[in-house]
């Protein structure tokens, strides 16, 4: 089985970011919790962008035998 692609990493990061945003938007948190969560969101967004900036296409060729 192949190792995870950048797509899977992106999906994982994006799903967590999405969850963070939704929790922030629900607004049931204390300010301290919200700030903490926001920092996590900012980290996730930065990690996503980094991933998108540095991704390199992987090409694998099957044997035609």
């Amino acid at each position: 089985m192949s190792e995870p692609t950048a797509v899977e990493q992106y999906e994982t990061l994006l799903a967590e970011l999405q969850a963070v945003v939704e929790r922030l938007e629900r607004g049931e948190l204390s300010l301290a919790e919200a700030l903490h969560l926001y920092e996590r969101g900012a980290e996730l967004a930065a990690a996503c962008q980094r991933l998108l900036d540095t991704a390199e296409l992987r090409v694998r060729q099957l044997d035609s035998a």
């Binding site: 994006l14 945003v21 922030l24 607004g27 919200a34 967004a45 996503c48």
Partner: peptide
């Protein structure tokens, strides 16, 4: 995809600004 990330980041910023 970058746009999608940026949108989420902006929403997070909007939410925290509103909270503050």
């Amino acid at each position: 995809l970058r746009q999608r990330v940026a949108e989420l980041r902006d929403r997070a910023a909007g939410a925290i600004m509103a909270r503050i």
